[in-house]
Amino acid sequence: MEYQDILYTKEDGIATIMINRPAQYNAFRAQTCEEIIHALKDADFDRQIGVVVLTGAGDKAFCTGGDQGTQDGGYGGRGVIGLPVEEMQSAIRDIAKPVIARVNGFAIGGGNVLVTVCDLAIASEKAQLGQAGPRVGSVDPGFGTALLARVVGEKKAREIWYLCRRYTAQEALAMGLVNAVVPHDQLDAEVKKWCDEIVEKSPTAIALAKKSFNVDTEMIRGMGGLAMHALKLYYETAESAEGGNAFREKRKPEFRKYVK
């Protein structure tokens, strides 16, 4: 596959997947998801790779979720909602190697979900994390909600989704959403340090540990698959469309007028 939306490199047992859409704050479209899935599978099959780093290009954003600038009742790709986001999230969990989120800036919406799904997360002190779904007429009714509750606790997860606030890297660290926070100019060195420590460990033991961790939350995948069908129906409503329209028109959405 020729990559258009990501940069994919391998060095010293480390595979790095970088979403390369800085002008869109590294928001993903269907093509982006397909390329990330492909790269993750390649890294999984490569026995020389011991760890994967997922990040975004530039200094502003890790990832800001689905590209609302291109959405018009759907994302135009495959999958229930035209965006293979379920498969992308599952690919992160299914790869038998740890995936580290290198959070270099905004991790909002679907970007926050990627941080949640990754095995580990290391953030720049300038990073901001949070949800935006209910603000733009969307939601991630699977790993983005249920797994988040396992990571940060039920009350905090509900706060994150219901209020759509932004949290600093230090606040994310305190709630357990990231593992470490470092000055921005030390981010690459810290990520490399963690990667090097993982690469020198037994790959089979690491794979068994990861699969074992996943067992406890595997039912979320099935729940998410079911919920995506409901989400598709929601995306076809005027209420959901109001969120995307308001975002593109840079105004406050008026969701209540669509509630019968």
Rank of each mutant, 00 (worst) to 15 (best):
A61F: 06
H38Q: 14
M1C: 13
F247W: 03
R102I: 00
Q24E: 11
Y75R: 03
E236Q: 11
H229M: 05
V199Q: 12
V80L: 03
G109H: 01
A146L: 08
R21W: 03
G225E: 15
I95T: 09
E159M: 13
F28V: 00
A169W: 07
P183E: 07
A132M: 09
K155M: 14
A127K: 07
A96D: 09
E249V: 00
S212F: 14
A207H: 06
E190R: 10
I220Q: 04
V99G: 13
T55I: 04
K211Q: 15
I49W: 10
T55P: 06
G111T: 01
E34K: 11
E200P: 04
T168M: 05
L177W: 05
Q170W: 07
R21A: 02
I198G: 02
L40D: 07
A132E: 01
Y75N: 00
Y234H: 03
A146P: 00
T237S: 07
N179S: 15
I220V: 13
R221L: 14
D94H: 09
D72C: 04
T9K: 13
G110W: 01
V136S: 03
I81C: 03
G76W: 03
G74H: 04
N26C: 10
G243K: 02
A101F: 03
G111W: 03
V52C: 12
K257H: 02
L208T: 08
R135G: 00
I37S: 04
G105I: 10
D188T: 03
Q131C: 05
I36P: 06
L173F: 11
G65H: 02
